[in-house]
Nucleic acid binder design. Sequence first.
DNA 1: CGCTATGTTGATCCATATCAATAAGTGTGG
DNA 2: CCACACTTATTGATATGGATCAACATAGCG
Lengths: 232, 232
Amino acid sequence: MRADDIPEIRALGLFREMEAENFDTLVRGGYFQTFPPQVDLITEGDAADFLHIIVSGSVELYAGWNARETSMATVGPISTFILAATIRDAPYLMSARTVEKSRIILLPSNDVREVFERDHAFARAVVTELAQCYRSVIKNTKDLKLRTSLERLANYVLRRHHGNGGALEFELGQEKRRLASLLGMTPENLSRAIKALRPHGAEIDGTWVRITQKNDLERLAKPSRLIDDHCS
Amino acid sequence: MRADDIPEIRALGLFREMEAENFDTLVRGGYFQTFPPQVDLITEGDAADFLHIIVSGSVELYAGWNARETSMATVGPISTFILAATIRDAPYLMSARTVEKSRIILLPSNDVREVFERDHAFARAVVTELAQCYRSVIKNTKDLKLRTSLERLANYVLRRHHGNGGALEFELGQEKRRLASLLGMTPENLSRAIKALRPHGAEIDGTWVRITQKNDLERLAKPSRLIDDHCS
DNA sequence: CGCTATGTTGATCCATATCAATAAGTGTGG
DNA sequence: CCACACTTATTGATATGGATCAACATAGCG
């Protein structure tokens, strides 16, 4: 592992408070790897051998069943994924593949569990992280079950708007087919939803998103703190 | 709190390993209450003042948005709910109401967080519990996004079959309207799905479920360890 | 016993999926 | 640098799963 990446990792909420000695244990056993785009990192059903930390690039989490496939999340730097499987020493529930060239740290699950047993600060940080993840998935379920696809798209645009510091124009940052799957619809349906959104104050043109009438968009989207807030 | 309920609580995975002193702190500050059916225990958006433990009866977790409502889970004894909100000191993402007469322990969230800071064993148990919850919700999302409503019903029947020790006949144990909402469909649609399931080896008649051709049912349901397993 | 909830069934409507064709990018090798 | 192949995006036509509306049946419950 490159020495100058270590401080960055150490600064993550998950590792910030833990004992230096335990942090060293984790880092010493870890691997730092760079992957090209479209590489499968993990396959659902496999044993969770490593906790993954994405340092640059982006990774898609997806799941399949009976020849169908759906995108579950896109994760960017700097965050971890499949923490729950690591902790429970259980099989992955999702697969992961790189979207673009990505640098990823792999920490052996055994080490993570061992340090987790010893280090109270680390254990607390894991709890905070997991509780956050749990709440995100609950919000996602509410989004899926309570909203139509158009409403989901409208709220997605607003969430991205807030995530970009309130910019009215920003890049989509991913393929539409993946966004469609993430939002629980087909690519064709997303195309139509994008057209249907135009008279409600949002345009998506190629890779660019522009909010033209925020009021209109919000009237349609009816964003909720209990579904759309990123933190809390 | 009644003295003879305490050992039962203490035996829960969440509390089993923690320091006696800390357990006492939690229990001393807790309330034990009995609620009639259809009582609202918590409302989404409120501050998470208490960690709830259901000792008998059953509780429905549900969520609403824009005049729509959906059932998120039904939880029975002995388990906790809204642990994540308690830990993060964040608003509830779901509401909860009793389904039947229920006995419930309320532990002040402040106490839980305080003990959580002090007691490593408790913190570890919280992690295990949360990781479990997280994985359940992920499985539920996969169920929703990857399967049709008929497939979800078929798999639900098979899960209940396994949950009842492999019995081919068992009680539904809840109103069909709630089951419908839980599975992400309308009551009408569930009625039709039930009829459609008959030629595939499962009958639901009133409150009774009977599996007549397990092979047929499994051929339709294609249950997956990574969606339908209760543990792991 | 009614009364109110819940469940069923039928008719219809709507959202979304599917199928098919075309267009627009994107990357590769000559 | 262009031509080709291949993937992705769009658009239209159609099919279908599921929702909605309405009527009726049934079952709890006071």
